[in-house]
Amino acid sequence: MEYIKDGRLNIDKTKHQMPTTVHDPCNYGRKSYMTFGDHHADNIRWITKQCIDEEHYREMVDSPLNNLCCGAGGGAWALPYDEERLAYGKYKSDQIKATGAELVVTPCHNCRDQIMKGLAKEHDLGNYKETMYLWELVAESLIIEPWNDEEVAKGHAERDAQNEKFEIDLDQEW
């Protein structure tokens, strides 16, 4: 967020011209609020709207604090209850479908995997096409300017010193 506000990132909004919604992870919304008295739901939306045009944004929930878990919280990916995990996500699937969004943005590994690898195959998500991490949306919206010669030389010097320190030989066969 700081990078965008300070003008350190050059973002091209035309790269993602599709109906887009945000899924709030429990940890950044409700549980953050319950633990620290503050949450990040507004920040997630603000960053998303720096990367897509406002007209493409579709809100999924009345209150991010009352949002439904995707079904993969609590370490569900490392638990043997896949059937329950997918059934749990039916509510989230219906919510995604109702937004009409093609792109779901979320800043959580578990949520992203559940929507992309779980719910999209198990349930009808309507117009849904893809899920992106919030930082993936930012990275894929960037116009990346190559560094100048001086910066490149500095980067290479640091890299070479580091590879020597850790005894990394990129030419070796594995």
Binding site: C26, R30, K31, M34, L65, N66, L68, C69, G71, A72, G73, G74, A76, L79, Y81, E84, Y88
Partner: peptide, 24 residues
């Protein structure tokens, strides 16, 4: 039981509890 593991610890129950029971 399986309950505490199928529960995803999302905290919604505790958030809505009118009596402040610490379900999560």
């Amino acid at each position: 039981s399986k309950w505490p593991w199928v529960c995803t610890l999302c905290g919604r129950c505790q958030y809505v509890c009118p009596m402040g029971v610490l379900l999560l």
